[in-house]
Design a protein around this nucleic acid. Structure first.
Lengths: 367, 367
DNA sequence: CTTGACTTCCAAAACGGTTTGGAGTATAAT
DNA sequence: ATTATACTCCAAACCGTTTTGGAAGTCAAG
């Protein structure tokens, strides 16, 4: 980190960034007896400046510690080399590992292409969120936007579509707008999970759903219902509880489910966090997860494999999705044509300890 | 989100942001027959423009959808109204809930003051990390920086101190530089945890340390050793294992500890994530956490109270620390004098199920 | 000696705002 | 009628770059 404060004094006649403020092209030009144009072009590597001059310029720039002013460059170039990302989050106790990983994927990919990342955290569907999007776009703060966790009749997408600004979404939409997106096949994922449980003999499946305005929740629920129907099973209304995607939410929802009679033999949670909460609730009640009752999640966040018991879930490569979404956006921004505008990833079933054969079900028929 | 695409055509003679690009002050001025100066000053609310004119200008601005170009404004004003934040993260499987919460706190506070947040994710102590800091600062991309998870002989802090740019750190430093910071009293925290375990009769405490270059790890370890020494206890070298702060790291470290003879009766993990991993390891070995062996963490991240058993830990208001650190930085940027440049927060002991009286210890003496 | 082709450099015009320092006009005070 | 005082408005400079469209100078070919 350049701890050596090299050249505080500089060579005679050469100023460095100090109290006088940062060194500008003008300073360099004056020190060298050249024009601003030439200095600029020398540093940019144009071939209409003599090799010897270029060398002089580069030496002086290093000497004086010249670093171009990014803002000025942006104004002139008409682009910001910045990507916007508004994280949907409500309240203080926000801690979905899901977003940490997504952010890491996005951030690293952005850095790889020399893009900056402008991040905001906003509560979904609030005036503040809307204002943030408007500001990022209309204030020309970003060259493109990443939209995550798409919603039913998503106003963000509808708005973005009218602006013409490049954007890529993580998640599909029910709107009549076409846009590039990456999504996991949640329908298929819950078919697989449901089938897995049915194979284990489960017939009374309960579902802890996502808030109903989230697209991914719609797909996942539909997938579960499809596979149940295929086996001529169905979930009574009281077996379906809408959760808030947090661990606490899964915990309280599961408590409700356990109070039913008969209680379900398997609880399908819409995401891992709620599944982890469900595990706690079951254990608190004295039952053994994986034997007395089976639990499944979705996402395969890191805690899933360290839970006790470990969690059966669908793996979704969140980090890579972050990278991919970001990569697609940058391609769009740079005017390239995407080879695939709509990517649907297949999640894979990870069977662990939280699911097991049904114990007391009427139709025990091991897989 | 203004779904109504109002005025695509606009009123006669008024252009809106469309294919022609965004509306500028110049466009407004021409449409109104005024000078750019007057339009600018009208919108800025100066009192040297007639009320009627101001109204005309504001109407037209709304009509034509004028939004100022933030970049241009920044260049002129010489500030970016942006805060930088480099998140230390290594690799794909990064998911510390700690950072999600911190980010939420920072982001919300920044938004409250109309600051943008420029976020990068970089592996600590790498050339990339250094380059990122240099770029943010020397490229004048941010008005101030937030530094988190301070390190021993932290090069970031040493560098920042030479730049004169406002910054606030979450964590103290061993360097001879003074800077504003917020930190939790990790020393005191581990004294309390250690005392709690000693009170429960534990004598063989093991410690899963943080990487040795992290300042918070130094304080926490020293705190534990201090309380042990006060009771004329000590930890043999094999009872101290350096972990990587992840759940997996806590898991493997605990496996090593359990293989020792005699094994420890209590495992003190440097953070919650490792403590959760420790719980898994103990359970995997067939022992019961809280009875056969006690485990403690630090941070009180949300999963801590949903683990099974729930985790005894030190609570640290991470979200609020994020807010506070951000708030202090903004005060600094705006030239205000901080009432308190060094904030040391007292964490509180949260006793839950993962700790209990020692079973087979030689000196059983319940609290 | 011209002419054309290169090479090397630069003045000036963007980019889209804000700010400075008047200028012009009406109104009020002398 | 003259001077002072507001009140409105604006041209031009500025922020720090990049880019455009030459302008000199050199050199070899004709």
């Amino acid at each position: 980190m350049g701890l050596v404060i090299r050249n505080v004094l500089g060579s005679a006649g050469f100023r460095r960034a100090t109290l006088m403020g940062p060194v500008t092209l003008k300073d360099l030009a004056e020190a060298l007896g050249l024009s601003i144009t030439t200095v600029s072009r020398a540093l940019a590597g144009y071939n209409d400046v003599a090799a010897s001059t270029r060398q002089r310029v580069m030496d002086a720039a290093a000497q004086m510690g010249y670093v171009p002013d990014v803002t000025a460059r942006r104004l002139q170039k008409g682009r910001t080399d910045t990507i916007g990302f508004v994280i949907p989050t409500s309240g203080p106790r926000f801690s979905d590992p899901y977003f940490s990983e997504l952010l890491a994927g996005i951030g690293n990919e952005a850095a790889r292409h020399n893009y900056d990342l402008l991040v905001s955290t906003r509560t979904p569907d609030t005036p503040e969120e809307e204002a943030t999007y408007r500001r990022l776009i209309e204030g020309r703060l970003v060259d493109g936007l990443l939209v995550v966790r798409t919603r039913v009749k998503d106003r963000r997408l509808a708005y973005l579509a009218t602006t013409g600004l490049p954007f890529v979404a993580f998640g599909r939409s029910d709107l009549e707008v076409e846009f590039p997106c990456v999504d996991e096949d949640g329908f298929r994922g819950l078919e697989l999970l449901g089938q897995h449980l049915i194979d284990l003999g489960h017939r009374r499946l309960a579902f802890i759903a996502a808030p109903e305005n989230l697209m991914f929740g719609v797909y996942r629920r539909a997938g579960l219902e499809a596979v149940l129907q295929r086996h001529e099973l169905s979930m009574p209304a009281e077996y379906v509880i809408v959760g808030d995607l947090t661990q606490r939410g899964g915990y309280t929802a599961t408590n409700q489910l356990l109070d039913l009679s008969p209680p379900p033999t398997a609880v399908v949670a819409c995401n891992d966090l709620m599944a982890l909460g469900a595990i706690s609730a079951v254990q608190k009640s004295g039952l053994v997860v994986g034997r007395d009752i089976s639990i499944t999640g979705f996402d395969d966040i890191p805690p899933a494999e360290h839970a006790h018991p470990t969690l059966t879930t669908m793996r979704q490569p969140i980090y890579d999705i972050g990278r991919q979404v970001c990569s697609m956006l940058i391609q769009l921004i740079q005017g390239e044509v995407l080879t695939k505008r709509h990517v649907l990833l297949q999640p894979t079933l990870i069977v662990r300890e939280s699911t097991g054969p049904v114990q007391d079900g009427p139709h025990v028929r091991p897989a």
